[in-house]
């Protein structure tokens, strides 16, 4: 039981960090970033290159992932999403663009890094063993979990207390009012997109030490991120965190409890999600109709 909770917390911290980036981009621009999983994959590969191939410290690798993705995010918003949002009659067009972007990033990853599964050497060796095998967890997983939680905390503090964070929250709340108060929408949209992409990159960099990384992980990651955002409510930061931890916990419990019935954890989670959304369409903390 304790083991399940520990696993759930570890998964939840990762998931929450992924969902945070997605929900931030959604809150600011009403864009559903299909390419989020691909951004995560790129982050993983950058850390792999820096840490495993160039032999630099792991922290540098994660930082490099974050910076690379921030740059990609900023460019994508400036040259792709920004113009399309301005020109398009229907806001769904951004979704098509995001899907196209997902294909493009997949292609880039394929050309730059190939399609092989890549792993990196362990960052810390050893296994944490609490109370004679009630909780067993490798140290590197614990480290990754702690780093993820630190990143979440830093993100919340940044959104809460910095000038940029306040501006972005204002934009998410009411675009027109924020504009009237002198918030530069274009500028903060770019910063927001960069920040959201950066979070995806950081998680990719962190998780490459545990699960490794390959080209095919992008799509499933996006889908998990969507589920978390739906549980918590789209565009709400607290919702993304809650959704991440809830999905992590459900997955951890499901894998143990439902193991006897085969691989049906996600089937069950989805069915429950549908029932839940029928009762509460906006998720746990979302505004009605996002």
């Amino acid at each position: 039981m304790e083991q399940i909770i520990a696993n759930g917390l570890y998964l939840g911290a990762q998931y929450a960090l992924i969902a945070l980036g997605l929900t931030l981009i959604f809150a600011l621009m009403n864009v559903l970033n299909f390419a989020h999983g691909q951004m995560y994959v790129i982050g993983g590969f950058v850390t792999y290159t820096v840490y495993a191939q160039l032999g630099l410290p792991f922290v540098v690798g994660v930082a490099a992932s974050g910076v690379t993705l921030a740059i990609i995010g900023a460019l994508v918003q400036k040259f792709l999403f920004g113009p399309v949002i301005r020109k398009s009659v229907r806001e769904e067009s951004t979704m098509l663009l995001a899907a196209g972007l997902a294909f493009l990033l997949d292609a880039v990853v394929l050309l730059l890094f190939g399609e092989k599964q890549r792993g990196v050497p362990k960052i810390v060796n050893g296994i944490f063993n609490y109370n004679d095998y009630t909780i067993v967890m490798p140290y590197d997983k614990i480290l990754v979990g702690v780093l993820a939680i630190l990143a979440i905390a830093a993100f919340i503090l940044y959104m809460q207390y910095s000038k940029t964070g306040r501006a972005m929250r204002a934009l998410a709340q009411d675009k027109v009012a924020a504009q009237l108060m002198g918030v530069d929408v274009d500028r903060y949209s770019i910063i927001g997109f960069a920040l959201g992409a950066m979070l995806a990159g950081v998680v990719g960099g962190l998780l490459v030490t545990v699960t490794g990384i390959n080209l095919g992980m992008g799509g499933p990651t996006s889908i998990k991120a969507f589920m978390m955002v739906m549980i918590g409510g789209a565009g709400v930061i607290s919702g993304a965190i809650a959704g991440g931890f809830i999905l992590g916990m459900l997955e951890s419990v499901g894998l143990t409890v439902l193991a006897a019935y085969g691989d049906i954890t996600y089937l069950v989670i989805f069915a429950s999600l549908m029932v839940f959304l029928a009762i509460r369409p906006q998720g746990l903390m979302g505004k009605p109709w996002g």
Partner: peptide, 28 residues
């Protein structure tokens, strides 16, 4: 009946998840 009450991005997300679930169901 339940999911059509959702709109916009929510409906898009849940239908995307539905695709993945269909694959899982076919496996299980």
């Amino acid at each position: 009946l339940p999911i059509l009450r959702l709109r916009g991005v929510y409906f898009a997300m849940i239908t995307l998840v539905l695709t993945e679930v269909a694959r899982l169901a076919a496996l299980a």
